[in-house]
C-alpha cells in the first residue's frame, strides 16, 4: 500500500510539471482532472487502521465528483464558449516556469522533512507533494495570461491544499471538507461566468485587458 501511495504522490507531481509545460488548454484541463481523480484515491490509501468507512468514502467520492468530473466539465464548457484553446504568451515562458517549478519541487522535497508538524505524518511524501503542488498553482495563477489557465492554477493550488488537509482528515468532520469542496465548485462556477463576460466584452480572454476598464 505504501508504494502505491508513493506512486500516486509522484504522479501528482508529474502532473504539476505537465500543466506548467503545456500550452494547450484542453490537455491541461484533462491533466488537472486526472490530478483530481488521483487525489480521490489518497484518502482511501492513507486511511488509518481503525477506519471510519463513511468518512473516508465521503472524502474520496467528494473529491472525485467535484475535482475529477464537475469542475473540468465546467472548464471545458467555458473554453468552448469562449473559443480559446491555447495559452499564447504567458508572462513567464514555459521553459523558465518549468525550471522554477522544478526548483520549487526540489526545495519542497528537500526540506519538508524538517517542517515541524503537530500531527503524525501519514506518508513521507505527503507534505512535500502538497507544498510543491501549491507552489505550482501559485506559479500558474501569477504567470498565465488567459483567464482559463488562471482558473486552472487556482484548482492546482486547491489540490495542494487538499493533500495537506489529508493530514487533518482524522480530526476534521467531513462536513468541513464538503463545505470546502462546495466553495471551490461555487468559485469555479463564478469564474466561468466571469470568463464568459470577459470574453463578451473584450472578445478575448486576456486578463491584461481588464486594466483598460474605466468608470
Amino acid at each position: 500500500m505504501a508504494t502505491f501511495a508513493q506512486t500516486v504522490f509522484i504522479l501528482v507531481v508529474m502532473i504539476d510539471f505537465f500543466v506548467l509545460a503545456s500550452s494547450r488548454l484542453k490537455a491541461a484541463i484533462a491533466a488537472v482532472a486526472a490530478q483530481g481523480a488521483l487525489l480521490a484515491l489518497l484518502p482511501l490509501l492513507l486511511a488509518p487502521q481503525e477506519l471510519h468507512v463513511l468518512h473516508v468514502l465521503a472524502l474520496s467520492l467528494g473529491a472525485l465528483l467535484v475535482k475529477g468530473i464537475g469542475i473540468p466539465f465546467l472548464l471545458r464548457w467555458a473554453m468552448r464558449e469562449a473559443s480559446v484553446s491555447r495559452e499564447v504568451e504567458p508572462v513567464v515562458g514555459y521553459v523558465p516556469s518549468l525550471a522554477l517549478g522544478g526548483l520549487g519541487v526540489m526545495l519542497a522535497f528537500a526540506f519538508s522533512a524538517t517542517l515541524p508538524i503537530p500531527t503524525p505524518e501519514k506518508h513521507p511524501y505527503l507534505v512535500a507533494t502538497s507544498l510543491s503542488t501549491v507552489w505550482t498553482g501559485l506559479l500558474l495563477v501569477v504567470s498565465r495570461q488567459k483567464a482559463v489557465s488562471q482558473v486552472l492554477g487556482f484548482l492546482v493550488l486547491e489540490n495542494g491544499v487538499f493533500v495537506f488537509g489529508l493530514l487533518l482528515s482524522d480530526f476534521m468532520p467531513w462536513m468541513v471538507e464538503a463545505g470546502v469542496l462546495l466553495d471551490l465548485f461555487a468559485a469555479v462556477f463564478v469564474m466561468g461566468i466571469v470568463i464568459f463576460h470577459i470574453h463578451r466584452t473584450f472578445s478575448s480572454l486576456d486578463t491584461g485587458k481588464l486594466s483598460a476598464l474605466r468608470d
Binding site: 508529474m14 510539471f17 525550471a99 517549478g101 522544478g102 519541487v105 526540489m106 522535497f109 528537500a110
Partner: peptide, 11 residues
C-alpha cells in the same frame, strides 16, 4: 522537462 524529471528522481 527531461532534466527536471531526472532532477526530481535525484531528489
Amino acid at each position: 522537462g527531461a532534466g527536471v524529471l531526472s532532477l526530481f528522481a535525484f531528489v
